[in-house]
Design a binder for these strands. Structure first.
Lengths: 149, 149
DNA sequence: CATATATAGTTCGACATCGAACTTAATGGA
DNA sequence: TCCATTAAGTTCGATGTCGAACTATATATG
């Protein structure tokens, strides 16, 4: 058993835990969301609310860590539901700009209520402590991976 | 801004970081894996190696946090590639048992080499420290979510 | 023993995601 | 200015995943 093996095990173990937590939390989120709204759709509405709308799809795709074609598909779904407006960018003939509608804002707020209530049943003081302890480290890890991909 | 809102933000923020780290690390893994081998396939081979083979698909599905039908599909892919053997369970007429083949073992070992080399380029001492610091907490969080899903 | 319930696996339809190729528009260098 | 390159968005085909419904077998209950 060499050092390299041990290090590999640590790395695999860490990412395995991350993967399972992601899997379980995403499943919980999907369960709390109404209709056929996928967690990724919810994440887009959240992003537009917290970071501001009027952005190009390719910017949102980059922020959400998905490809352009995936974003095209997701935005089509959100537009069909009336949660966003997609207009051509007057400054750039190639680009479009994405805007939240009031219906989209209302939907997001309602979903936030349900999701928060659901998480409140599962996340206790001990879990909050873990979140507070690890959040800074996880942010650094995320930043490092993002910069070196 | 109420306490509930703050708590919700903490929870969302934590799971958002987890989701991005998972996204980026999975993308890295997919990039390092040869052919059309998906990270989930690699995870199954890993599981069979580390935890032992001769298990029923439903057990593997539970361990991998995916549904039975997904496991049926994944095992079909692995079997077509000759990485596993799937035989009927002599003790239970409903069940099957999954065994790693030598070809599957060889494939896994080679993949481990490539993946480790790739992670070695990206994961530095600082990231290893983060992994060591957070691993225990993440394990507790994973366990709690797993028990309360 | 007989029937009801639970479990293992499969099949089907739906959907999110990806990579590759394509179209159109912007940009930068000869 | 003209052409090559880059960038934004779309389309296409493939794949992983899920939920629901189904078949076959095992287990429990009367």
């Amino acid at each position: 058993m060499t050092d390299t093996d041990d290090t590999s095990k640590e790395i695999f173990g860490f990412f395995t835990e991350i993967g399972i937590i992601n899997q379980l939390s995403t499943a919980l989120l999907a369960q709390a969301l109404p209709d056929g709204v996928h967690p990724s759709h919810f994440a887009i509405l959240n992003h537009l609310t917290l970071r501001g709308d009027g952005k190009a799809p390719v910017k949102i795709a980059s922020a959400m860590q998905v490809t352009k074609n995936t974003m095209t598909h997701s935005l089509k779904v959100l537009e069909e539901r009336g949660y966003i407006d997609v207009k051509p960018d007057p400054k750039d003939g190639r680009a479009k700009l994405v805007y939240l509608t009031s219906k989209g804002q209302q939907f997001r707020e309602g979903a936030i209520q349900e999701v928060s209530a659901m998480f409140g049943k599962i996340i206790g003081p001990e879990q909050l402590d873990i979140m507070r302890r690890t959040h800074g480290d996880l942010g650094k890890m995320r930043q490092h991976l993002d910069e070196n991909r």
